[in-house]
Design a protein around this nucleic acid. Structure first.
Lengths: 225, 225
DNA sequence: CGCGATCATTGCTCTGGCGCAACGACGGCG
DNA sequence: CGCCGTCGTTGCGCCAGAGCAATGATCGCG
């Protein structure tokens, strides 16, 4: 069942470190939701009604800019939490737009339930704080890179971050399933420049490219350029 | 006393919404610290031992980059909280360097005390979550502006943010006490460009400048350029 | 009040990388 | 198997804004 797989999963960021029995109760109160590709869970500025725990699949966190484009904030995977603002006592608005990439599964809780649960499980809020500070750290790193680094450096960072975080590691390098312009968005670089830099890295033998796939053969080869 | 002034201060982000008696207890457990100008409270990467509640004065949050320069993250004022990572169950490192700007006062708690207190006061963690998410929101806004906006737009943002957040409002515009290059750092713009843009705004009558002081006369005048 | 230090201004040069346009490559669907 | 939509590549022009160097304006200290 979902309950068992989740309760046993210590890598999920919301319920970790809690009494298993409490975990079971909380999970039982959540609503399981099946996610279709390109489904929008919520939009920027909407009043936050649900908090999601991503069980399977990937979700893109972004924000529309007045220029019509989307600024990509993050790509989340299994075990990650969406819609933290929902936990706040004061009603708040979502800070970004959450759109699924693949198919997947999520557990959702509404504000009312969440507040009731958190009263009996302070660890829930503590975990949320950990997640939130994780976001802060990520933004801080990215901001520093954006202000001080070159496009290539940012791409290298984004790639190695993806490499350690959500990908399958093989004997033949680390395989990352990401489209060229998604990577571009995560590194705050134009798709054009991304293509050029990746090309250079492939010539250097640091990576191998395919359509929607990048394999890192030699992580150290990313630094010099 | 310090206790009274703080307990009565609903604008502080750490103890707000809590039972006054509980506030009193928590404050009594904290250590009052006098802050001298340019004093470093903690550095990036140091294991987080103390959490600070800023009572008076301003503190600069930044991070050194390998290029030797400092990337300015934020300027905090009275009521703001520093060193949130200290509240995490797992030992963590400070994410930035905190350096005072003016003289001031702070209350400090060490990790052990903090954990003991937070067990009896879950609201403490909830408040911390609010603060953390505030940081996330700030980073998200700034990131969007940095990626999509021009230098002038970023300066306008930074200025109006400072204007609403920590400054004294007068009949003759909003007075902001900030040095040119601090503003530059907050807007991620070079000091040179900052000077030029401010000059233009002064010619347009949108602001008035002095050494270390900017007065916003007409906030709408910042947008067109 | 004079001097050094800090802060601000200004003209100029130079460049990273964005954006356009156009083309090429791949993959899925009928 | 051929067509079309998505994804990736390349050449090129262009410009916002960083960085340098030099000067000017203020402040604070003795």
């Amino acid at each position: 069942m979902v309950e068992r797989s989740l309760a046993g999963d210590v890598t999920n960021r919301l319920l970790g470190g809690m009494d298993p029995e409490l975990q079971r109760i909380i999970i039982a109160e959540g609503t399981r939701t099946r996610l279709r590709p390109a489904q929008v869970l919520y939009r920027t500025g909407e009043p936050a009604e649900f908090l999601y725990l991503l069980v399977k699949g990937r979700v893109q966190l972004s924000r529309p800019s007045r220029a019509g484009r989307e600024v990509l904030f993050s790509v989340l995977g299994a075990g990650d939490v969406l819609g933290l603002v929902c936990l706040l006592t004061r009603r708040a608005a979502y800070m970004g737009t959450a759109k699924t990439i693949d198919t997947g599964d999520a557990l959702a809780w509404d504000r009312t339930t969440l507040h009731r649960l958190s009263r009996g499980a302070p660890q829930l809020v503590a975990n949320a704080l950990t997640v939130a500070l994780g976001f802060v750290a990520q933004f801080a790193d990215r901001h520093e890179a954006l202000v001080e680094g070159t496009a290539a450096e940012r791409l290298a960072r984004a790639l190695s971050h993806l490499g350690t975080h959500g990908a399958v590691s093989l004997a033949t390098g680390i395989e990352i399933r990401i489209k060229n312009d998604e990577l571009a968005g995560l590194a705050d670089v134009s798709a054009f420049t991304t293509s050029r830099v990746l090309q250079q890295w492939e010539r250097d033998g640091a990576i191998k490219k395919g359509r929607g796939v990048i394999r890192i053969m030699n992580p150290d080869g990313l630094l010099p350029h």
